[in-house]
């Protein structure tokens, strides 16, 4: 009985943890339960969430994408280059459209490259994305000679703060990505196949799953999500930066595994990742408000990852049986 309690509640535990923590903080942390701070939370959550969702797709297929930070950096400078009035490649209204499209395209392209290396050449995902991380973050720095790109269009910079029908635009974007990924994973053939590959890739291949295509898709999707995250970050910092997102890799992976997605594939849910990312952001935000410095936040994050791991999937198969 005890074992099954932990097993079933393991995944859900992050939800209770999140809500419990939120309630406690509402009383403890000064200025936490205010409208302002709630917006703050939301703004911090959205990019992390979107990137973590992409990572969730990859992890369900038993892969990993370490290259997201480099994708963010490359897409950020791409956007900066296409939109900045310094380069003046496009006139102002078009520059926004081409800039955003260009960023998405670059993100998807790098993701596709990862996917092809994993699916077609049989390279281990960890090494592929590790090397593309080095390659593309190097590329971003080299291309810009480590200089930021400024003077982005007003419309782009203001995007995170604009609103439609009283609700900020980023919320729409977040909800769309959340809804789309939930739909893909839970309602479609694509989703069924993504889980199947994570559970047993050979069985999937023989049963007619288009393995290579799906794997390429998940990495491309992760690249797409990272690009969306990069759009957020770039707009908020008002610069295209070649070192953007350098430190969020482990936050993203942390969010996904705290949510209970298994590193061994086949297990993971969008809603778990939502709460995983939410919890990461909550920690940052609340500990900041209590004026705990950021090193303590790191130590707390580390502990939370361990606690979450104790409760969920990432220990079941820890001693491999092959």
């Amino acid at each position: 009985m005890k074992a099954s309690f932990f097993k079933t509640s393991g995944a859900a535990s992050i939800i209770y943890l999140c809500l419990g923590y939120y309630i406690v903080m509402a009383f403890v942390a000064p200025g936490f339960f205010t409208v302002n701070n709630t917006w703050n939370l939301l703004y911090n959550l959205l990019p992390l969430l979107v990137i973590a969702i992409g990572q969730t797709f990859v992890m369900i297929t038993a892969g990993i994408d370490l290259s997201i930070t480099s994708i963010i950096a490359v897409t950020s400078i791409t956007g900066g280059y296409l939109m900045s009035s310094d380069t003046a490649i496009f006139d102002s209204p078009e520059s926004l459209i081409f800039g955003v499209l260009g960023m998405l395209l670059v993100g998807i392209s790098i993701g596709t490259l990862n996917g092809i290396a994993v699916a077609r050449f049989g390279m281990p995902a960890f090494m592929v994305t590790l090397t593309t991380m080095m390659l593309f973050s190097g590329l971003a720095i080299w291309l810009t000679q480590s200089q930021n790109i400024y003077n982005l269009p007003e419309a782009f910079v203001n995007m995170p703060y604009s609103s439609f029908l009283g609700i900020p635009t980023p919320v729409y974007l977040g909800v769309i990505v959340l809804g789309l990924s939930y739909f893909l994973l839970n309602k479609t053939l694509l989703g069924e196949w993504i889980y199947a590959i994570g559970l047993n890739v050979e069985t999937s291949r023989i049963s007619g799953v288009k393995v290579a295509r799906i794997i390429i898709f998940v990495y491309a999707f992760s690249g797409f999500c990272a690009a969306i995250g990069a759009i957020f970050y770039t707009a908020r910092l008002e610069t295209g930066s070649p070192v953007m997102g350098q430190n969020i890799l482990l936050d993203v992976i942390g969010a996904v595994v705290i949510g209970g997605t298994s590193l061994f594939g086949g297990k993971g849910k969008i809603i778990w990742t939502f709460f995983g990312a939410f919890f990461m952001v909550l920690l940052d935000n609340s500990l900041n408000l209590m004026s705990l410095s950021f090193f303590l936040i790191m130590i707390v994050k580390g502990s939370v990852i361990l606690i979450a791991a104790l409760l969920n999937a990432n220990r079941e198969k820890s001693l491999r049986t092959t």
């Binding site: 053939l189 889980y195 199947a196 069985t203 086949g266």
Partner: peptide, 30 residues
């Protein structure tokens, strides 16, 4: 074990795996 089943998956999903493409509706929905 290695090529016929997804051993940690439910019976239903295992039985359905090969035939799923024939039961999809619009938008790739199953």
């Amino acid at each position: 074990q290695d090529e016929g089943l997804m051993i940690d998956q439910t019976i239903a999903k295992n039985v359905q795996l090969a035939v799923l493409p024939r039961y999809t509706k619009s938008l790739n929905r199953v």
